[in-house]
Write a protein that binds this DNA or RNA. Structure first.
Lengths: 132, 132
DNA sequence: CTCCTACTTGAAGCGCGGTTCAAGTCAAGG
DNA sequence: CCTTGACTTGAACCGCGCTTCAAGTAGGAG
């Protein structure tokens, strides 16, 4: 066996993901095992990088299906870059929305109104969050 | 019947939420009907404001359970404001994370590397997203 | 050789945030 | 009166992102 191959337990430990999650990702087409050691899946070390990418994208709110599509976009980078540009715009919008929300919360924390829900500034701020 | 009361269909139309969602929210303790017109729930107009608040918080990534807890915190504003301050910090962190992600995507779109996944700057950027 | 351990599988289950369904009920209109 | 149409209910179902379970199996230790 190639010494550089990692079995599923090793990948689980190093990636911080559960083995069940790794198998789940495989079913979803996010990663692939290169072979087996007995029944145990073995992975290329590069899989760890791929998992970092997956985790990052997932944390960012991408669905696993979206991520799989990205990864499958394959070496034809044009599609990939186009998708990424679209996602950049989406993330930008999300940041703007969360920023408005944070500003509303910031006001809420220092606002004198009681009950807070009746504060005109708060009400207006809340409305701005979803409808900029 | 008080002319100012709205029945569920009216609230659904004005809030943009499905009647099923309104009933679901009621089970979760997010809203309350003040009475019935026949079988139809009737709501105070203030319910629309409350729903705007709920929608906003939900869009911001709060769970319905969290929102319900917030709303139940009741007139004792101290708890509410404390919770909001905590959420402001959480939202701020999320904004920072998304900002790092957007920067990675921004680089990815203009990066010359092929395959992109091998670009050192991209790899480093990806790592920074989840582990600032 | 046997035994232990760490994996393997498919299937079922969970929490979230709802929607959809079948069957029933009410108010208003003709 | 009876019909129509918008609601009512509880229960089932959905997609997501997994975890958990029971039953089975391979590799290595003794």
């Amino acid at each position: 066996m190639d010494e550089t191959l990692l079995d599923i337990g090793e990948v689980a430990r190093q990636s911080g993901l559960a083995p069940s999650a790794l198998r789940f990702y495989e079913r979803k087409g996010l990663i692939e095992a290169v072979g087996r050691n007995g029944l145990r899946r073995t992975y290329l070390p590069a899989t760890l990088e791929r998992l970092a990418l997956v985790t990052c994208a997932r944390d960012a709110g991408f669905t696993l299906a979206e991520i799989a599509a990205f990864l499958r976009a394959g070496p034809s980078d044009a599609v990939l870059r186009e998708g990424m540009a679209a996602k950049e715009r989406a993330v930008d919008e999300r940041i703007a929305q969360l920023t408005r929300l944070r500003d509303s919360l910031r006001h809420a924390v220092v606002c004198d109104h009681d009950p807070l829900v009746e504060c005109p500034a708060f009400k207006q701020a809340i409305r701005r969050v979803s409808v900029p």
